[in-house]
């Protein structure tokens, strides 16, 4: 099995993630985009591990770590978005520019 198609898939997913991160205005969608980028990285890790036949399965373990951390991060992120939405009745990121200098 060749490596290239998988890397292309991952690159495509990552690009979609970046697009979502920069272009979307809804905070929930931005979080989703971040998840997309993380998963693109996971695919890369597993693919490279399979390619070099690592006996210790480092790539998979790393991927599992990232999934765990991502779950925690999404939990916190969604909680923050929820609190902001309750207080401001909006999930639009442009409405939250109160930290401007």
């Amino acid at each position: 099995m060749t490596l290239a198609p998988i890397l292309v898939l991952a690159a495509a997913l990552f690009s979609m993630g970046i697009y979502g991160l920069l272009a979307r205005r809804n905070a929930v969608m931005v979080l989703l985009a971040v998840e997309l980028m993380l998963n693109a990285v996971n695919i890369n890790l597993v693919a490279f591990e399979a390619a070099i036949r690592d006996a210790m399965a480092t790539g998979q373990i790393f991927a599992i770590f990232i999934i765990t951390v991502a779950a925690a991060e999404v939990g916190i992120g969604l909680a923050i978005v929820l609190m902001i939405f309750r207080n401001r009745h909006s999930a639009n990121l442009d409405d939250f520019a109160t930290m401007s200098g």
Binding site: I18, L22, V30, L93, T98, S100, G101
Partner: peptide
């Protein structure tokens, strides 16, 4: 430099990318 600090999170993300 203060002007750079817009408070818009996606501008920061853009700079990051």
């Amino acid at each position: 430099l203060r002007k750079l600090q817009t408070g818009r999170i996606q501008q920061y993300a853009g700079a990051f990318v």
